[in-house]
Design a binder for these strands. Sequence first.
RNA 1: GGGAGAGUGUCCCGAGUGGCAAAGGGGGCGGACUGUAAAUCCGCUGGCUACGCCUUCGUAGGUUCGAGUCCUACCUCUCCCA
Length: 418
Amino acid sequence: MSTYKSDFLNILSERGFIHQVSEPDALDARAASGQITAYIGYDCTAASLHIGHLLPTMMLYWLQQTGHRPIALMGGGTTRVGDPSGKDESRRILTEDMINENLRSIRQTFSKFLKFESDGGNAVMANNADWLNQLNYIDFLRDVGRHFSVNRMLSFDSVKMRLERQHELSFLEFNYMILQAYDFVELNKRYGCALQMGGSDQWGNIVNGIDLGRRMNDAHLFALTAPLITTASGAKMGKTAAGAVWLNADLVSPYGYWQFWRNTEDGDVARFLKLFTTLPLGEIAKLTALQGSEINEAKKVLATEATALMHGRAAADEAAGTARKTFEEGTFAASLPTVEVARATLEQGIGVLNAFAELSSLVSSNGDARRQIKAAGLKVNDVTVSDEKMVLTAKDLTADGAIKLSLGKKKHVLLKPI
RNA sequence: GGGAGAGUGUCCCGAGUGGCAAAGGGGGCGGACUGUAAAUCCGCUGGCUACGCCUUCGUAGGUUCGAGUCCUACCUCUCCCA
């Protein structure tokens, strides 16, 4: 591992964020001698970022922590086109209203990691719709389009793959890489931005931007990509039953978020601590020296630290406490996810199937509940349900005034009368 | 515009002969073993008021006792020719 002169590259490198850098020495010299401005592009096809966005966001975090200026570029304009990279299916095109809605929501997530000008920081949130929406087609072709060689564009993997697999690649999508290159040039002009970061799959797109900058404005731009994160067993990160692990608290609760990190595979703990927490490396080394089941301690730290970054220290500690009570002490944690029922309904009796399917949503249907009962997967107050006709009444309330419904060993919901 | 092919269980890939709630994977969920891990093994993976009923194979019709399967039209996509 090479040592850099700048804190920025040193930290990214030590923590495992770097996959490829263009002209590392030149970039290092620049970062060591003054402030650089760098950006990462995000799409806004959803109302929340997910775990997959976390890694690039941490790069922006460290950028700012080491005295530089981060730009989070929202693809308000390019989202209306769709990135063909690595995807066979054309991305769904959203309306402008939906995009703006998503933008608002995502900004909140960024403000957890970055200090924007309104908070006394120097981070910038830009939207490429600001310049892309105004482009004049003829002017754009003349000023930008002439710098692109179709021969070369056809040789990019993302394009080649689509052609080889005989999947359609529309002209619209084909232009995505040109727009992204143009973003870089525009940010360079507006903010003096000299570095674009992103996932390793973005390398080609970023390099295009570097070329375009040199040709149009004689600008000297840089690229830095992060490795693609997969779990030790090779799965893509951030996928669960429910789909993506979202960062917004209303989509995935802090407790659920904590659990996600808690269930990290052994082989990933060290890497994730470095990437997704801000703990000093020395401390991380100590944690990851733990052997066997001891490594669970490291997982708890990972979960709490990652959750604290995202949802705040208090929420993280609460999630850790809930988990401790539920899993280690086997007791009742009143802070588990809770569903309320009318007391009168409970007095009349609630069928287990109904309780699990309709009320708690732990299972998707009555049929699913039946199957889980057959497989001994459902528990009421920690007792396995064996009869699908079982009825829950006020008698089932524990001393804490609720009924604990469990699916498997990990998913619990409290049923509380009101 | 002409010709050739494709669309299957709302997670994905993918068999499918007129009797099909539809093979097989992957993924996911549950169980066992463990450490809330991985690996391994086992079970499940349309809905319901459930020995029955209802809804599913691009869409809409049709032929049949019976259609994912045959016919017609339409939609979407791919390839070749113009």
